[in-house]
Nucleic acid binder design. Structure first.
Lengths: 354, 354
DNA sequence: ATGAAAGCGCTAACAC
DNA sequence: GTGTTAGCGCTTTCAT
């Protein structure tokens, strides 16, 4: 059934055993039609007997095509990035590509060129840059990108002409959250944002600002405190916020973890949610549904994000190969959606606060 | 600075430009000492100018060594597996190996041989099988393993002679949790287990059984209900358990998500935690600290699990290469630890629930 | 210190 | 239908 030796079986050995040329074996393996049925059968038998397995590396070398995608990620110990990777792996599998994975230790401050060179040395057919935009971690791409021999798809970053980008629409998410609270009748709505050097955090905050503006409720920066995505920072932020403005009746929190910190603060201070403080988070982590009370949130489909990125990248790769006109780079924006739950809407009496 | 063409630069072009043989370029690239300083300088200049990048694939082909590790994982959308992958990536980076990643859609029922063949075709130097043991998903390895040309390290599975295994000691974890509750004076301690076809779930349950036995508190299976790791199943399980045995005063829950479901049930039914029901979870997810009340749990270092797996695998690979005696396969067991919090010990919390 | 030749395992291109 | 030749980009071996 399978090989008995530890040395890998090559096409030559198969050819010799079957009494044909390596070419013929190659044809059989690649399911070409121009092989006599009888010959094919004989070769297949030998392949089976020796446990022959074509060497994908040798194949890549001559075909200048590895059917391999490079994936650069960061923060796999967080829910978002790992779900995205999940989407990437499943779609890559479907489309017949293997993944080479690089994880950055930090979200910024690394050497982009080293990473790219590493991936390119391995002859990947394309690259998915799945690290979220923050600080200046997109600098240095501009110069390099034009000379790259393979296409790159970026995840979660702001529009830049000439780049392929797939991202969740954070503006829309922030608007949905804020509008939801406005619709519930809240007049003083605070915001706990993620770190300001994160692009996603800024977009969510902007949307909150804008929605308040439009409702004629502008209050300046007094109503916003910056957290660092952690539950701990969420608790600290809400304390600060309520210290400043005790009249806050609702808060849009930049992610579910910080919202969890807000919930804990509320419990410890006998603040009833949502009667005294309505809360909407962001992300849609599975646990949120079981928080006490269950947390209203903006759900973003990070799995889908990864899937779409792979589809896009593969499409570009195949287009290049068939010499068809190169597509214009574009930005794809996925739509998050509001999940109302008991932390925003009192379940006992509809839309009732206080 | 970097290449101007889209065609990748080869060693030949560099050689030609520098007026030397490809040999010499190879020597320079591989930092051999037997090159005249002057020649080296000239070659380096050309390399820089053309943006030459050695083709790792061609190198692998001739060296029969890819410096690549195959990683097979499943359930990346869960915290555990993604943290483990996080550990794997970081240590692989340190040790100079690139990762080829395969994610299985299911935890069992796939074709092991297809996955292995795929990885082997890509000439990986070793494989980390990071899929947790469940059902019969370890069947089919036995026959295949002996003929594999590369070593394999398995994660999270029971002892099997002849295999390299790295795992968290679930027995110890279960014991720590149960003993903690016993020490607090509880006499009727329930258990909500993970699905019985998961090896980890069975071990945790066994440890709970054993600890009760030793304390002379055996109650048979009446005190255990099986969940499916989800928060929802945790809520259902505790309802069932308390329906059967209202005298239960403490419960050891198989993971933190299910424990969250138990907490929600407690809130909804005005059960005070830990006064009416003490709870200990398992995993140590970061959110647990901010649950209400904060959840006592057994922390397992899944990141470390991945790190150790890589170290082991690389050690085996290098040992084989230097022809030194092949090490005996062994099992490495990492120790989880108890994190007591307000869900088990009331003195840690000065607040009341509403 | 440097180069020439051979070959890793495979397939493209062309013969017959 | 099938075999022969050549070569992908690199390193190994052996000359010089």
């Amino acid at each position: 059934m399978s090989a008995v030796t530890n040395r890998r079986v090559t096409i030559k050995q198969v050819a010799k055993e079957a009494g044909v040329s390596t070419q013929t074996v190659s044809r059989v393996v690649n399911e070409r039609t121009d092989v006599a049925t009888e010959t094919r059968q004989r070769v297949l038998t030998v392949i089976e007997r020796l446990g022959y397995q074509p060497n994908a590396i040798a194949r890549s070398l001559i075909q200048r095509r590895s059917f391999t995608l490079g994936v650069v990620t960061a923060g796999l110990d967080y829910v978002g990035p790992s779900r995205t990777l999940n989407g990437i792996t499943s779609n890559a599998e479907v489309l017949g590509y293997t993944l080479v994975l690089k994880e950055l230790r930090e979200f910024s401050g690394y050497d982009i060129n080293r990473i790219l060179d590493d991936l390119l040395a391995r002859q990947v057919d394309g690259i998915i840059w799945a690290v979220t935009e923050m600080g200046d971690n997109r600098d240095g791409f501009a110069e390099r990108l034009s000379t790259l021999p393979v296409p790159v798809v970026f995840l979660t970053m702001r529009d830049r002409p000439g780049l392929n980008i797939v991202t969740v629409d954070n503006r829309l998410g922030g608007r949905l959250a804020t509008q939801h609270l406005l619709d519930l009748g809240h007049k003083v709505i605070g915001h706990i944002s993620g770190p300001r050097d994160w692009w996603e955090a800024r977009r969510r905050k902007q949307a909150w600002c804008l929605a308040l503006d439009e409702a004629g409720l502008t209050d300046g920066d007094e109503l916003c405190v910056e957290g660092n995505w952690s539950s701990e920072s969420g608790g600290q932020a809400i304390a600060k916020l309520l210290g400043r403005r005790p009249d806050i009746s609702a808060v849009f929190v930049g992610n579910d973890q910080m919202a969890l910190g807000v919930l804990l603060y509320a419990h410890e201070n006998n603040l009833r949610v949502p009667q005294h403080l309505a809360i909407v988070g962001f992300d849609g982590i599975p646990e949120a549904e079981y928080f006490w009370p269950p947390l209203a949130t903006i759900e973003q489909d990070q799995h889908e994000l990864g899937c779409v990125a792979v589809s896009e990248l593969v499409e570009i790769i195949e287009a290049r190969n068939t010499e068809s006109a190169i597509e214009e780079p574009k930005t794809i924006r996925l739509q998050p959606k509001l999940i109302p739950r008991a932390s925003s809407v009192s379940t006992l009496s509809n839309n009732h606060q206080q």
